[in-house]
Each structure stands twice: as structure tokens, then as C-alpha cells.
Design a protein around this nucleic acid. Sequence first.
DNA 1: TGTATGACCCTGA
DNA 2: CTCAGGGCCATAC
Length: 132
Amino acid sequence: MVSPKKSFVELFHPLGSVGSRSRRRSPPEENPALEAIWHVVCAIPRGQVCTYGEVARAAGLPGRARQTGFALKVAPQKLNLPWHRVVGAGGCIVFPKSSHEHREQARRLRAEGVLVKNGRVARSAMGLLDER
DNA sequence: TGTATGACCCTGA
DNA sequence: CTCAGGGCCATAC
């Protein structure tokens, strides 16, 4: 029936590796790995958050959470990505507590109805997989 | 070519 | 909870 309670990440999978290691130093706009990451981030439902690792996995890059961070950093503002919906493992905001980015992310998340407390988001807002 | 850095993650003590 | 250590990989210099 419906509601298999699959996480948003599980729904993504068709790509089957984006090429696994594009050793070609191409600009971000042509880098398939980055594009995949952007695509995934863009697909995160409003009011829900995802971790860097989850995004990487969903993009076909398991174990490369760092690249997710890099992808977000180099992402053109033009794409207007919901970067604020990406948090660290356990739902914590990775930016320094007193940084501008930290507050901005928290503010945006709250605006979407996500409860942010002490630099962390509520468990209920996470990909439904970190439940534990 | 080698070292350093980073919007990370996981395990174990 | 904190802290330390190892892993992973793309860029920058």
C-alpha cells in the first residue's frame, strides 16, 4: 500500500553511480557529480532536512559527504538551491554557532516550520531514517 | 607532485 | 556528553 515510510533518500536511486569518479577537472557546470548533488538538494521537500551524507548517497556518491559540502559551496546562486535544508549528521548545523550562516540557516528552517534548537533540528524533520 | 584544507561521517573510549 | 583517530575526496597552492 502506500506510505512505506521510505526516506526521501531511498526514493532516489536510479542513477546508479554518476560515473563514480569523474577524474576530469571540469568546471562545476559540467561536473556530473555536482549536478547530481544539486539535483538531489533541489528535491528535498520543504519543511524537511537532509544530511550531507544522505545527499551524497542519494546522488550516487556514497561516502563522499564532503563533496556535498563542496558542491553547495560552489553552487551558483542562480540555481537558488535550498542549501539550508542540508545539515550535518544527527541534524546539527555545521556552521559555527555565531556565524552569520548559522543564524541564516536556522532562520530559514524555522520559516519552514522546522524546529531548530541549540543548533540542531528536530528529529521529526529529518529524513525519517535517523529515527533510531 | 606533495601538502593542506574543508558547508563531512563514523566508531570507540 | 566530549575527545581522538581514521576515512573519504576535490581543490588550492
